[in-house]
Simulated assay, not measured.
Amino acid sequence: MPTTPSGPGSPGTLEAAPVDTDLIVIGGGPAGCAAARMAASVGMRSFLIEPDGLCRGLARIPALNNVLGGHTGGPALADSITTELKDTDLCHLELGRRATELRAHEDRVTVTLDTGARLTAPYAIVATGVAPLRPGDVPWITSPPDLTVPPLWEADPTAARGRTLLVLGGDRPIGTFLRAHPTAGTRLLVAYPESDAYKTEEIRDDPRVRLLPVAHLTLRGTTAEIVDRSGARRTVMADAVFLSLGSAPAAPPGDLVHDATGYCRPSAQHPRVLIAGDLRSARYQRVMTAMGSGAEAALHAYYATRDVPRDERP
């Protein structure tokens, strides 16, 4: 197995060690799965590391309107991707395992698993995506520390029928919820900060939605005291409260370069580390863009191993 990097916490060179595979893919969402599938199509062996199940997040999306292939729901698309990848001979799946460290070296990358095992390859694709934010993670919400607020995708459409839901944050699962339950008669009060304004465009004209731009919100059960951007105060009440705060980057520790918001921009990384999917930016978090970026990253690694000049690669 690979040996220890020459310098802790910084890129270096490895002692002589075999390369385990052609490509390591960290993350088993649409981006990581597309990367492994594309790699196999050009004859590259890969290890795909995923702590949960393949496309687990995708399976939670009840309605899709931005993918090709006739899939209108996330569970069906997730099943299709999972089946295809499990039938891909050149991809070795490491499910139930987490990457605890990634190190980039002059001639290869090393990825350490939570078992302590280490894998090496000429390139790694990091497609770990994002993790959901909680009320305590954002400065514009004050709430009791022991208060549990579920994400909107967990809302039971039957229980929500005819009720008013307070939604904290303007992230895109709101549009998904509305498309998935067009006849539920549910009313949404969407409280969001200025930074989420661009995310509310797709729901702005929906009659079931009341937009509440806020500077600060104090949550007490199903009641919220809102301070709007002009400083005016008001109280809103709902039957239940759900989250749509968005997500924060969930990159593994190691030799990754993060921007001020925690995302890992592809152009800033070590040449042997490629970023795909939602980890790239908050602006391009879509199933189709994730899959495209994963496939493109795999081709980048393929051409690089064949010494195709960078300016001649796709």
Rank of each mutant, 00 (worst) to 15 (best):
4 T>G: 12
5 P>E: 10
6 S>G: 14
6 S>K: 11
8 P>R: 15
10 S>F: 15
10 S>E: 13
11 P>M: 04
13 T>G: 07
13 T>W: 12
13 T>I: 12
14 L>G: 07
15 E>C: 08
23 L>H: 05
23 L>F: 05
27 G>D: 06
31 A>K: 02
36 A>M: 03
38 M>F: 07
44 M>T: 01
47 F>E: 07
51 P>G: 11
52 D>A: 15
52 D>I: 10
54 L>Q: 14
58 L>G: 08
59 A>W: 06
60 R>T: 11
60 R>E: 08
60 R>S: 05
63 A>W: 02
63 A>D: 04
64 L>M: 08
64 L>H: 10
67 V>F: 05
68 L>T: 00
68 L>Y: 07
71 H>V: 06
75 P>E: 02
79 D>G: 14
79 D>C: 10
80 S>R: 12
83 T>C: 03
84 E>S: 13
87 D>L: 09
88 T>R: 08
91 C>Q: 06
95 L>T: 11
96 G>V: 08
103 R>Y: 06
104 A>Y: 01
104 A>G: 00
107 D>P: 11
108 R>A: 10
110 T>D: 07
120 T>A: 06
121 A>W: 02
123 Y>F: 14
128 T>H: 01
133 L>E: 01
133 L>F: 01
135 P>Y: 08
136 G>C: 08
146 D>W: 13
146 D>A: 15
155 A>K: 03
156 D>I: 04
157 P>G: 02
160 A>R: 09
164 T>E: 11
171 D>S: 15
172 R>G: 10
175 G>L: 10
180 A>Y: 11
182 P>A: 12
182 P>C: 02
186 T>I: 05
190 V>Q: 05
190 V>G: 07
192 Y>I: 02
193 P>C: 10
193 P>Q: 09
197 A>P: 04
198 Y>L: 10
200 T>G: 08
207 P>Y: 04
213 P>R: 09
218 T>S: 11
220 R>F: 09
223 T>M: 00
225 E>D: 13
234 R>E: 14
236 V>G: 14
241 V>T: 13
242 F>I: 06
242 F>G: 06
243 L>C: 11
244 S>H: 12
245 L>A: 13
247 S>R: 13
247 S>N: 13
248 A>Y: 09
249 P>Y: 12
251 A>W: 02
254 G>A: 01
254 G>T: 05
257 V>T: 15
263 Y>C: 00
264 C>I: 05
266 P>E: 02
267 S>L: 14
269 Q>H: 01
272 R>E: 01
272 R>V: 04
275 I>H: 03
276 A>K: 04
277 G>Q: 06
278 D>V: 09
278 D>Y: 11
280 R>E: 00
289 T>E: 13
295 A>T: 04
298 A>G: 05
299 L>N: 02
305 T>M: 12
311 D>M: 09
